[in-house]
Amino acid sequence: MIPFVDLRTQYHSIKQEVDAAILGVLESCQFTLGSEVAAFEQEFAAYCGAAEGIGVNTGTSALHLALLAAGIGAGDEVITVPFTFIATASAIDYTGARPVFVDIDPRTYTMDPNAIEAAITPRTKAIVPVHLYGQAADMDPILEIARRHGLVVIEDACQAHGADYKGRRVGSLGDLGCFSFYPGKNLGAYGEGGMVVTDRPDYARTIRMLRDWGAEKKYHHVLKGYNFRLEGMAGAVLRVKLRHLEAWTEARRAAAARYDALLGAAGIATPAASSVNRHVYHLYVIRTDRRQALQEGLAACGIQTGIHYPTPVHLLPAFAELGHRVGDFPHAERAANEVLSLPMFPELTAAQTAEVAQAVIALDGATQATRREAVTSPA
């Protein structure tokens, strides 16, 4: 079987380092925040090219607290995309604000800057572009629009650790950048975790208080906050894994290049990486209008796949109150019907990528032949 991700193999490759880091936390008994978290905050912020890093318990909490720190609240509107994980919109909703969707670029799956200005109203306070699948959104026009309208830009970089846009790391491009350390991410904890990075010390101070019950110091609660602290064990493990992230990223990019060469030659719709971006391939996503048959065929071959995401947020029952209908964001809807994520992890071998690609090509050809027969068969 070829797994979709292989966290066990990765763990065994760094087992001694990870085990030593975990034992260190057990010895120190700094289980919540503590020195390992503080060191990781500094190291990850520096990796992103940002001045401050604030560790939290999930990527969702990172988005939530970044929005609150930026002053987003009840009655405000925040522009984002519907083709993302629900957490992007949910974090906006948690603040009392309303998510306002704009469609995606059909090639990159990221926010279409040309759609933003028509969505701006007097209530708009922020834009949340999503760096989806490991590729940065087209940030220059997004930032230019935000500056003209006095809007905060909060990057959802939860799938894009180490991705670059025109030579700059995501997370450091807008006012705040939000990351997830869910286990399957390019930089994943052994459990949950998240971080906000920013160059604004006022935002950083507010988020540090909000993650810890609004406390400026112990039992001195300045704000009504939350219990969103990053655990010491997560900080220690993430420090170890951060040292390997660049090598893992290049391994992902090499695997993606192998997929591109094999699948592209056969006419399969492969990811469109912008020439100004460094795509880090959190996911390797192809497109097909025969997705169910292809996914079932790959499963029968022992190849795991995923769908990210089968329903755009504006059509989910959870956000029915927004009143959207099928057809409102056609590029997002079409992508949701066609995307299929193939196995992608740093340890993916050349033999495994070849096996997956060969299976995709064979099954795609078979489904096309079946369709042709169905169309040409006499009634």
Rank of each mutant, 00 (worst) to 15 (best):
G75C: 10
V25E: 12
S180H: 02
L7H: 04
A20Q: 05
C158I: 01
D164R: 07
Q159P: 04
H149E: 08
S90H: 14
S377A: 15
Y284Q: 07
A234M: 01
Y284M: 09
A354C: 05
G174S: 07
V37M: 06
A39V: 01
L151F: 10
A66N: 01
A251G: 06
F329N: 02
L316R: 06
G297N: 07
G214N: 03
D212M: 03
H161V: 15
T270F: 06
P141H: 04
R169T: 13
E347Y: 09
A336I: 04
A335I: 01
A46S: 11
R253N: 12
P346F: 13
I72D: 05
M344Y: 01
L223W: 14
I145W: 09
G24C: 06
L242T: 05
F44H: 04
A354P: 00
T58G: 05
I127R: 00
D260L: 11
A189D: 14
N277T: 12
V5S: 06
V285M: 08
E36K: 00
D289Y: 08
I92V: 15
A160R: 00
L7K: 00
V153I: 07
E231D: 15
F181D: 10
L7D: 13
H324S: 06
S35L: 07
H221C: 10
L63Q: 06
A273M: 08
H131P: 08
I79T: 03
A300S: 10
I79W: 06
L238M: 02
G171Q: 02
I79R: 00
F31N: 11
S341A: 15
V130C: 10
I22G: 06
A51Q: 09
S180V: 03
T124L: 14
T108C: 13
R147F: 14
A350P: 07
G297T: 06
Y182A: 15
L143Q: 02
I154L: 09
L262P: 05
P346S: 08
G171C: 05
G59A: 06
Q159N: 14
G71H: 10
N186M: 11
A115L: 12
G171Y: 04
L132M: 09
Y182P: 08
M139C: 07
Y11R: 02
Q16H: 05
H308L: 14
A146P: 01
H220W: 14
D328L: 01
N114Y: 13
D199W: 03
G194Y: 05
T270G: 10
L316E: 14
T121M: 13
G323Y: 09
L173D: 12
I307H: 08
T367R: 00
T349Q: 01
L7V: 08
L348Q: 01
E338F: 10
L262I: 13
G96H: 03
D105T: 12
T198I: 11
V339A: 04
I145Q: 04
R290I: 08
R98A: 13
Q42W: 11
D6M: 03
G150K: 00
L294D: 07
T110F: 02
T84N: 09
F181Y: 15
E17C: 10
R169W: 00
S13G: 11
N114I: 04
T288I: 09
R253C: 14
A254N: 05
F179D: 09
A146C: 06
T198M: 08
F179A: 09
T367V: 15
S35T: 13
